[in-house]
Design a binder for these strands. Structure first.
Lengths: 343, 343
DNA sequence: TTGTAAGCGTTATCAT
DNA sequence: ATGATAACGCTTACAA
């Protein structure tokens, strides 16, 4: 049973009066600051509880912390981010912090504007999830408040921490799996129009793809197509692949949603998945498991990534200054979409 | 080209010194307050620009507005909310306001905690998207800051505005459409375990379903199953429907994701969609259009809902006190999943 | 251990 | 039209 009490604008002064102590004692007692007797703490807490005291975040922000963390997410559509955020909340649940999301729409200008807004609001820290802004700008932003970057490889980072899955390895797993299933003409469907491709996950996935193809002696079969996230762009790029010469017998898509589009298009064109065409995605979002997709995908355990990012942010807020890099190993989840052809 | 300048902690005092005026003049000039000469405004703006001045939101929050709006969203997984948020941003783009999201996880306690956090941070207003908390608590919350509720029917609302699609009509469209396609044993797969079902969209959809079934003389065929949003719960409920006696020839699912699960399960059970079973969803999310789903669904134009909610919130912040109710008409988007059987 | 006092950067109210 | 001054509610030295 939850029930809201109307906020009564109770201040430290009111609590102090009720408890019969000074207002600064209240401030200390409530934050469990040092040099406060247990007796004092008990009295203050009782009064605060009774009056329904809630600290005024703006006032706090002027001198101390706001207990607010910002999370910049590039795209609200991708269900993978929901998993990341869930992990984030797992860790924050036991703390006095609250988190709020800003949506960056995968535009550098928007991302920068949101970061400004977070800094202006004196947030205690922020997590940037798969930002597409310039790495140089990330560096500057991280100089303003404690920052953890998730989903961009910036190993030379000093002012902030990074959390990633090993995208190159994920791509390697995919290509080797497809090879084992008998595929040879394996194409990679990548993300186009990236303003700052360096370090971005898709760039690393492409590298893993290219290198593994070479290792397998398939250098001549390397084929990379690109498309922005608009439905039509994906459709056009996939159509060119499937109707062009040397039709691939497998398409590795940089993220699941693209793979779903490819499966749909292939079906429309009368191609059987997986007999005529194997399709693989990345992120292992919930839709992959649906039988009509049954999409092979790479799982990078978003929840763990989110948990790790939150832990690192808290420790950085706690005073750590040495940068940390966390990398989790992805795993391949094989489903029908990449079964051996003719099986 | 966007480039971040390091935040230099420039205050109104610094700007005042540079411009050679008093700091209070700066405050007024920058907000375009009345009784400020054009000359003064120009000088102040020039200095502010030069120094990279950015108002300190926490300090603002203590006296005036924070220019921060909160958006409470119940579930990050549902791509429909992305459309709503896009509409919201459409309107906010031309204003000095920034919006931040809190994720309520469809739990009343979490929702209340987030609203508290928003109020404590002195946000200027909030939009609650499909909250599941008690209507009484919504009322109390709305008494604290300007509020617009989207996705809950509360026509008696006084302290806040509401924005909705006509869920009852949406359900009517679905049932009549299925009837026209020759379906007679039409089941409704609803959401279970709702702590406060009154006014919630799914409740209205169920009502529309029941009433239309009666109007069509199908009262005896009314069958309502419920499932929470967990994958297993949906699967179990759908299995009971499809393996039980009097198997329905159509299932109307309260939201698209449930419908995708049903399509998958039906396929697994060897049932043809739409020949053996028609499936219909609600929200018309992007996945509906994929050929492997080709899901008939009800479009409630989330973007328009979001735009409307934002406009109403701004006008309420601007001083309006009379409550407003906005209702948009949904439309049915027919696809293969509900085609006439045997066609 | 507790209380006093000084800010934090704004906005708003008053003189001028 | 402009400038000085008093809040806003809190944290944090510093004094008692």
């Amino acid at each position: 049973m939850t029930s809201r009490k109307p906020r009564s604008k109770v201040t430290v002064h009111d609590v102090a009066k009720d408890a019969g102590v000074s207002f600064s004692a209240v401030s200390k007692a409530l934050r469990a600051a040092p040099h406060v007797s247990a007796q004092m703490r008990a009295r203050v807490q009782a009064s605060a509880e009774k009056l329904g005291y809630r600290p005024h975040a703006a006032a706090r922000g002027m001198r101390g912390q706001t207990y607010t963390l910002g999370v910049l997410i590039s795209d609200l559509h991708n269900p993978f981010f929901a998993a990341i955020y869930a992990g984030f909340e797992d860790v924050l649940a036991g703390t006095p912090y609250h988190s709020f999301l800003g949506i960056g729409r995968a535009e550098p200008a928007t991302e920068n504007a949101i970061i400004d807004a977070m800094v202006d609001r004196q947030m205690d820290g922020m997590i940037l999830v798969a930002p597409v802004m310039a790495p140089a700008d990330v560096r500057v932003a991280a100089g303003e408040i404690p920052t953890v970057v998730l989903g961009v490889h910036l190993p030379e980072a000093e002012a902030f921490d990074t959390v990633n899955n090993d995208d190159e390895l994920g791509a390697r797993l995919v290509v080797r799996h497809l090879y084992e299933q008998g595929r040879r003409r394996i194409a990679f469907l990548s993300l186009g129009d990236l303003p700052h491709p360096d370090g971005v996950t898709v760039t690393h996935r492409e590298r893993g793809y290219r290198e593994t193809m070479k290792e397998l002696g398939l250098e001549d079969a390397i084929k990379v197509a690109t498309a922005s996230m608009e439905t039509n762009a994906i459709r056009d790029a996939a159509t060119r692949l499937l109707k062009g010469p040397d039709r691939p017998d497998a398409i590795f898509c940089w993220t699941d949603y693209v793979a779903f589009q490819v499966i749909g298009l292939a079906t429309e064109l009368g191609l059987s998945v997986p007999d005529d065409l194997a399709v693989v995605g990345y992120d292992n979002t919930p839709y992959c498991a649906l039988p009509q997709n049954s999409l092979t995908s790479v799982d990078q355990s978003g929840r763990v990534l989110g948990q790790q990012a939150a832990k690192m942010l808290l420790s950085r807020i706690g005073g750590r200054t040495a940068a940390q890099q966390y990398v989790v190993m992805p795993t391949l989840v094989a489903r029908r979409s990449s079964a051996a052809s003719g099986s």
